[in-house]
Each structure stands twice: as C-alpha cells, then as structure tokens.
C-alpha cells in the first residue's frame, strides 16, 4: 500500500524532477564547482545550499498558492502580505517585544489578511483575481504605514536567526519551508481535506450539493496562503535585518504562481500536488542561479529566464506531451500487440 502511493507520487513529479535535474546541470555547465558543498564557519556553504535557501520565500508562498489554485482561485496579494508581515515583525522587536511575540504577531496579521481575501471570495463571491488585487495594491501601503516609509532595521538575534541563522549547519529558512511543505502535504493527503479542496475546484456547485462547506474551506485555503506569505515575509526581513516595505516580496506572487504552474497544476483548479509545486519553486531558483553564475550582463537576465521558462512550459504543454507519448508508443510496437491479441481472444 505505502510503496504504491510513493510510486504514484514519484510518477506525478517525474517531469518536474527531470526539468530540475536539467536546470541544475545547466548550472554545472556555467560553473563547474556548482555541486560542491563545504562545511564552513559552522554552516553548509555552497551554491546548492543557496538554491535551497534563496528559494525559501517562493517555496513557502507556493504551498499556500497550490491550495488556493486547486479551488480555482488565485492569490495575488501574497507579495504585499509578505511586506506587511515583515514590517509588523520588525516594528514589534524594535518596540522591545520578544522575537516569539513578533513572529506570532506577524503570522496573525498574515492570517487576518488571508481571512479578508477568503471572505471577499467565498462570502461576497468576488472573483479571486479581483478580490486579492485589492490587498496586492493596498497592502504595500499598509506596510509603509507600519514602517513609516523607512527601512526599519533591527538587531534582535532571535528574529535574525529565522532568516540567516543555521540549525546543525543547515540554514533555518530551508528547514522552515521543508517542514511546512511536508506538514501541509501530509495533512491534506492523510485526511479527506485534499480531496474536498479538489472537489471544490472541479465543481463548486455539486460539491456543495454533496455537503461540502465550501465557504469555510475556501476561506481556509486563503488563510493558509496568508500564513505562508507571513512566514516568508518574516524570513525575508530577518535575512537583511530590516523590513523594506517598498521591495519585500515585490512581484513574488508571480513567481509563486509560476512555481505552481511548472509543478503541473492546472490554473482551472482540481487535482494538485504540493510536492510538484515545491520542485517548481526550486526550478525557478535554479534558473535564477544560472543567471547569476553565468556572469552575463544584467540586460540578459530576463531574456534568459524567459527562454528557459518557455522551454519548460512548452515541454509540459498537452500538445507536446501527446506528441511525445505517440513517439514513445510507436517506438515500442511490441507491448501494444499482445494487448490486441488479448482483446481478440476475449471476443
């Protein structure tokens, strides 16, 4: 039983793993020392660790985003929520509160933002893209109000540890996103929650007829998204020891959506895989790493990124997938014939 479900999961994420391997190989081509990981100053040090560490904000965002998209929604506000959460955490420690209070305060504000989005979508039935756009635009202003327009710097070692500290040599952000990713994936898959979310994404009307409380569930996925965004915002602020309301999480909602799409999840909702989205986030970070390591002039950054992403999406497109399937099928004529014979024999 167990091994078959693991095999099914592996089969689901195989395309993403192949793409990740290819992009990592591209990193190796531009920088031969890419895979070298050393233990230096009491922490793991290397490009591979950077990919895992720098991918943390996108990875955290895409956990919540995957659930939201599975309900046929979208959350554009996550970048702004990051800015708000970072600002709240920074201002709390600057005011003398402990880092635990600051973290809890930031997470609470993030979840509040999520509930706001959820109510707009689930209760007032505003289209998700419009509903979350409100907070995307207004959120950054709220963050600026909290920081009073400056980069609010802090030195609280506990909070800084969340962004740039290590636990047994592993950067804390990596541990946070891996743990949260596994926890959420386990919760939705070991209970019926995942299936209920998929049901809402496929057909909300009939799932409600079947007795699913779609309002509560939709609000909850936006709440989770807000929680993930707040955690990402705290990490980003802790990383630079300051809350930068203008720039924290800027355009990161788009990277998160892209990670979900690269993860093979449909924007039309329904079946989803958090694991595949997380690999998608790592693929995006690996692409960023290629750009930084290649030493090309920055004018090429977006062009290179666009070319790699287009290649990934084309390979995943239904038409190309189908063509590949036909090629594979015609290349192996033997397995198809016994099936025919078997059919004939049953007639």
């Amino acid at each position: 039983m167990m091994s078959s479900s693991i095999r099914a999961t592996l089969r689901r994420v195989t395309p993403q793993l192949i793409i990740l391997a290819a992009v990592l190989f591209l990193n190796f081509l531009v920088f031969p020392d890419f895979f070298r990981v050393e233990f230096q100053n009491g922490r793991l040090f290397g490009n591979l660790i950077d990919v895992l560490n720098r991918g943390a904000p996108t990875a955290l965002l895409c956990i919540g985003m995957t659930l939201v998209i599975a309900t046929k929604g979208i959350d554009l506000s996550v970048g702004a929520v990051m800015a708000i959460a970072g600002a709240v955490a920074a201002s709390l420690v600057v005011d003398g509160y402990s880092w635990q209070t600051a973290l809890l305060g930031a997470l609470a504000v993030g979840m509040l933002c999520g509930i706001w989005n959820g109510i707009l979508v689930a209760v007032l039935r505003i289209q998700p893209i419009v509903a979350t756009l409100v907070l995307m635009v207004a959120g950054r202003g709220i963050a600026q109000l909290v920081t009073e327009g400056t980069i609010l710097t802090f030195v609280n070692p506990g909070l800084v540890h969340l962004g740039s500290g290590t636990v047994v040599g592993i950067p804390t952000p990596i541990l946070i996103w891996v743990f949260l990713g596994l926890a959420v994936a386990a919760i939705v898959r070991k209970t019926a929650l995942g299936m209920l979310i998929e049901a809402i994404g496929i057909n909300e009307g009939s799932s409600r007829m079947a007795g699913i409380n779609s309002r509560v569930l939709i609000t909850s996925v936006y709440l989770i998204s807000g929680f993930c965004a707040a955690l990402a915002g705290v990490i980003v602020a802790a990383d630079i020891k300051g809350a930068d309301a203008n720039n924290a999480g800027l355009w990161l909602e788009l990277d998160a959506i892209l990670a979900v799409v690269i993860g093979g999840n449909s924007l039309l909702g329904g079946r989803f895989s958090i694991l595949a989205s997380l690999i998608g986030a790592l693929i995006i970070q690996s692409v960023n790493s290629v750009i930084l390591l290649s030493g090309m002039p920055p004018e090429f950054n977006l062009v290179i990124k666009a070319l790699i992403i287009i290649a990934i999406l084309v390979i995943q497109s239904p038409t190309v997938k189908h063509a590949l399937y036909i090629i594979r099928a015609s290349a192996q004529p033997l397995p198809s014939e016994p099936v025919k014979e078997a059919k004939e024999s049953t007639q």
Partner: peptide
C-alpha cells in the same frame, strides 16, 4: 570582474553578493 544588478535593494544586494563570493 563581475557586474550584476541588485535592483537597488538590500535583499538583492545580499543575494547577488553571495553568488559573486562563490563564482
């Protein structure tokens, strides 16, 4: 020897410097 954009921000400045230090 290396020149890359950090978008005028602290966090990008840190990220890009990390890659410089390794590359």
């Amino acid at each position: 020897v290396r020149s890359q954009t950090g978008d005028f921000t602290r966090s990008q400045g840190k990220v890009v410097m990390e890659s410089f230090l390794k590359a």
